[in-house]
Write a protein that binds this DNA or RNA. Structure first.
Lengths: 198, 198
DNA sequence: GTCTATATGCTGATAGAC
DNA sequence: GTCTATCAGCATATAGAC
């Protein structure tokens, strides 16, 4: 694979992400993507195998970025409450650095498919990564309660609430791109953890 | 319009809402809906004008429910912080009573269309209702800060965070339908407002 | 009010010329 | 690597028999 084709592929992925974000995977056609890239839809297939491959090439890498990030925090020796703060900071950074890919996370994963013939299990792999992330998040949250840094709240409600905000941050950030990241981190920390601290 | 046809229409709307929730508007076909209702797709058109009309018949009523609810709170004589608490309780009730319609609110409104020829402005009307809701929410939030019941936080971040959780509540609730509503209200109040109180 | 048949257009993807 | 031409299938919606 030449360097040039890799650049072209990255462009196709980036433009697809923007279109998927705007209209969703199902409502975005291969022709829409080709128009955006500036070629005919048939030419796209010199760079990609299928529309489904594009979605997988967007969702699986971003899911792995999330998991790598929380794995590293999990393995650190910080108190659990400090781990939670770091996880929130990491999610903000990931969102700011990959807003289009992140925008697909809440809802577009349902369009991932499994294809036995190609040994290609996009849906299963994605769900596994997401479950791994949520499992660690809840585990660390429980630890912070055990360590008396958080009140003994309803864990599932609290984790759902925090993650709902973080997963939607891309949409708020799109309208406020000039905000200082440190301010955003501080404010969100207060919003998400402030009411739960002992 | 006969009583029977109204019942049939309600069934079509309910089944459509469930399908739109699962796969999204664009990925749900008229045939999918007809299958679910138990008739051929052509027969559906004896009960509805178009697929687009179904989406509007789901989204606009639920948006009006939200607006009616916040309008009533806004006109009350409660302190702003009590208004916010009531708004959160109302959103929880609306979600529990209309989970499928509520599930369409975060993302499916982009598929609403305007049709000049039919004097039918679904998109514009929906966006207007949503903006009205958010304007009142922010106004009441600001008031609660002025009345010293909330810290002087970054208002837009705080409102975004609270609304993100409330708009996603349908998905958490789907997996925890047996929870007592009073408990849910109490926990969410702590999560959403706890960190912001003076 | 439901059906079969059909119109018209768009979908993802492929074949083959250049 | 891009193009034109094309395929088979599915989309929304309508016409008209029963």
């Amino acid at each position: 694979m030449t360097l040039k084709s890799k650049i072209r592929q990255k462009e196709i992925l980036a433009k697809s992400a923007r279109l998927f974000r705007k209209k969703g995977y199902a409502a975005t056609s291969i022709r829409d993507i080709a128009d955006e890239v500036g070629m005919k839809s048939a030419s796209l297939y010199n760079h990609i195998d299928s529309k489904q491959e594009i979605l997988q090439s967007l969702l699986l890498p971003i899911a792995k970025i999330y998991v790598t990030s929380i794995d590293r925090v999990h393995e650190s020796n910080l108190p659990a409450i400090k781990k939670l703060e770091q996880i929130i900071r990491d999610q903000i950074t990931i969102t700011i650095e990959n807003p289009d890919a992140v925008s697909l996370v809440p809802d577009q994963w349902v369009f991932l498919e499994n294809d036995d013939k190609k040994d290609n299990y996009g849906y299963d792999e994605y769900v596994h990564l997401r479950n791994h992330y949520e499992k660690l998040f809840i585990e660390i949250f429980q630890q912070a309660i055990d360590e008396k840094d958080l009140k003994p709240v309803h864990i599932e409600i609290a984790c759902f609430s925090i993650l709902s905000t973080l997963r939607r941050l891309y949409s708020w950030y799109a309208r406020h791109r000039t905000i200082d990241q440190a301010v955003l981190e501080q404010e969100l920390m207060m919003n998400l953890l402030g009411g739960l601290r002992t």
